[in-house]
């Protein structure tokens, strides 16, 4: 006689129930805090929503056309393209150089790795304030002005507020470089450790000399997937830039005259949605930005062959 086991006691059913019970909190969390806000934001972008996040007052594509015809928003898109054009190649080159140097260091490799990685753990806001108030303030005793003085210059530069020449790009770019180069260096280090040492040995046997030739013909090609990932992550992070622009140029409370010098889309959308309380236009702008990021990512993926077999 066989004992009839209730279906919920069968091991596979029980395992399934356990799976769903254990994974449910995460799925519910994702749904409530990630997917639902995205859907709600999309609905808001088609609504007139001022001082309100209620949907229903549908305005079709008007918020989108308003944002696209807004010269300040278009200028912000141009600003972020310029910033990306600076920051992505610089971060890529510097983190790769650092990774190669650390990888080939004959001593103290963990120390160098840690030292270069530490800035990643620093808040963007804190770093921005240090850059604005400490390194690049416009006073004679500001660090950057002191450096100029040591080199014999008597000029006291206003690094953040000068439009011609635009020194503020130096401040913004160096701040982000310092913060993120360590992180991408770690990615490259992981990639470097994956390269089979025998490839180098074989090239030496064939007469190649260690240095630029092996770097160009072995290291770089073998790092292709890592490189594409670094560029992709870096590119998305650059398009989402907010903190350093807001904190370095914004100046806080009632001083916003410098923000117009270089205002990325997220800062402008923050002004529209949170400052002006226009959630409809703010959401529309956010989806335009998302579309731009997706298009650039796909184009970049096609060019660099992201996901293609090595």
């Amino acid at each position: 006689m066989t004992v009839r086991v209730p279906f919920w006691r069968r091991s596979n059913v029980e395992a399934n129930i356990a799976f769903w019970v254990l994974i449910a909190p995460m799925l519910i969390g994702l749904g409530v805090f990630v997917f639902w806000p995205i859907v709600w934001g999309l609905l808001l972008s088609f609504s007139e929503a001022r001082n309100s996040i209620s949907i229903g007052h549908w305005v079709g594509w008007r918020n989108y056309s308003d944002m696209l015809s807004d010269s300040a928003f278009r200028k912000s898109l141009l600003t972020i393209v310029i910033f990306t054009a600076f920051i992505v190649p610089l971060t890529f080159a510097l983190s790769l150089v650092l990774a190669v140097l650390v990888h080939t260091a004959s001593f103290g490799r963990p120390i160098f790795r840690t030292v270069f990685f530490i800035p990643t753990a620093i808040s963007y806001v804190v770093a921005s304030l240090v850059w604005r108030m400490g390194f690049f303030n416009g006073l004679p005793y500001g660090f950057a002005n002191m450096v100029l003085y040591w080199f014999g210059s008597s000029k006291v530069l206003d690094w953040i507020g000068t439009a011609h020449p635009p020194y503020y790009w130096l401040v913004l770019v160096t701040c982000r470089l310092w913060l993120q180069v360590g992180f991408y260096m770690i990615l490259f280090l992981a990639g470097l450790q994956e390269i089979d040492q025998s490839l180098y040995e074989a090239s030496w046997v064939d007469g190649a000399t260690p240095g630029w030739t092996t770097f160009r013909t072995i290291t770089l090609p073998m790092l292709r997937n890592t490189s594409v990932a670094v560029i992709l992550l870096n590119f998305i992070a650059a398009f989402q830039a907010f903190d350093e622009f807001y904190n370095i140029l914004g100046g806080g409370l009632a001083t916003s005259g410098n923000v117009g010098l270089a205002r990325p889309p997220l800062v402008y959308l923050y002004q529209v949605a949170i400052g002006q309380q226009d959630y409809g236009r703010g959401s529309a702008g956010a989806f335009i930005l998302v579309a731009a990021i997706i298009i650039f990512t796909i184009v970049q993926g096609r060019i660099f062959g992201f996901g293609r077999r090595s």
């Binding site: 507020g161 100046g251 001083t255 005259g257 410098n258």
Partner: peptide, 9 residues
Amino acid sequence: LGNDGGISA
């Protein structure tokens, strides 16, 4: 007049 050259103030 402020760090933005007095624009806001």
